[in-house]
Lab assay of single mutants.
Amino acid sequence: MDVFMKGLSKAKEGVVAAAEKTKQGVAEAAGKTKEGVLYVGSKTKEGVVHGVATVAEKTKEQVTNVGGAVVTGVTAVAQKTVEGAGSIAAATGFVKKDQLGKNEEGAPQEGILEDMPVDPDNEAYEMPSEEGYQDYEPEA
């Protein structure tokens, strides 16, 4: 019985440690998101679009440190934060509304985080759909 109880105690310690790591990862992701939003706020009209992409990228980098179902929630929060940063930029006159959601080359930025393969159960990952990809044929 002692062996059984000791095993359960060790398992509990492992769960607590994993929860603490997840909590730490979420806190880091939130900190990076805040950094990115402050970065966007300090940019001029020309830099705002690039700044919004930076927020998304920093958040995406930190999301990889967070495991399990938390990833889905962090990704949703990050996307809403990026959308909010863009709205703030438009409201303050840093950028025109028609410039939001495009990178410096004018290509749409939507789907940055949505296409990231995420499995809350950590069982399997699927690649994003290939609808947006084109076949590449090298020139002879």
Rank of each mutant, 00 (worst) to 15 (best):
V3T: 01
G7R: 06
G7Y: 08
L8R: 00
S9G: 10
A11R: 00
A11L: 15
E13L: 02
E13Q: 06
E13C: 07
E13H: 03
E13M: 07
V16A: 07
A17E: 05
A19N: 01
A19S: 02
A19P: 00
E20C: 07
Q24G: 05
Q24N: 12
G25W: 13
V26T: 01
V26D: 00
V26H: 00
E28I: 10
E28V: 14
E28D: 04
A29D: 00
A29W: 14
A29S: 01
A30T: 06
K32Y: 10
E35V: 08
G36R: 10
V37K: 01
L38S: 01
Y39S: 08
Y39Q: 04
V40D: 00
G41K: 03
G41C: 10
T44V: 06
T44M: 15
K45F: 13
K45L: 15
E46Y: 11
V49T: 08
V49N: 02
H50T: 15
H50A: 13
H50E: 03
H50F: 15
G51Y: 11
G51C: 14
V52Q: 01
V52S: 01
V52Y: 05
A53S: 09
T54I: 12
T54P: 00
V55Q: 01
V55R: 01
A56F: 05
A56P: 01
E57N: 10
T59A: 05
E61H: 06
T64K: 07
N65A: 08
N65I: 12
V66D: 01
G67Y: 06
G68K: 13
A69C: 09
T72P: 01
G73F: 09
G73T: 13
V74Q: 01
V74A: 04
T75Q: 12
T75G: 10
T75L: 11
T75Y: 15
T75W: 13
A76R: 07
A76N: 11
V77M: 10
Q79H: 08
K80Q: 03
T81I: 11
E83L: 07
E83C: 10
E83W: 08
G84L: 13
G86T: 13
G86E: 12
G86H: 12
S87D: 07
I88Y: 15
A89C: 14
A89F: 15
A90D: 07
T92S: 05
G93T: 03
G93P: 05
G93A: 09
V95S: 06
V95W: 08
V95C: 09
K96W: 13
K96L: 07
K97E: 10
K97F: 15
D98N: 15
Q99W: 14
Q99N: 08
K102I: 09
K102S: 06
N103S: 10
E104I: 07
E104T: 12
E104S: 03
E104A: 12
E105C: 05
G106Q: 05
A107K: 07
Q109D: 14
Q109T: 15
E110M: 10
I112Y: 04
E114W: 05
E114S: 11
D115G: 14
P117C: 11
V118F: 09
V118D: 12
V118G: 13
V118K: 12
D119N: 03
P120A: 08
D121C: 05
D121A: 05
D121I: 09
E123R: 04
A124E: 07
Y125Q: 09
Y125T: 10
P128N: 08
P128M: 10
P128I: 12
S129V: 11
G132S: 04
Y133C: 10
Q134R: 09
Q134N: 08
Q134M: 11
D135K: 04
E137C: 09
P138L: 06
E139Q: 03
A140R: 10
A140G: 12
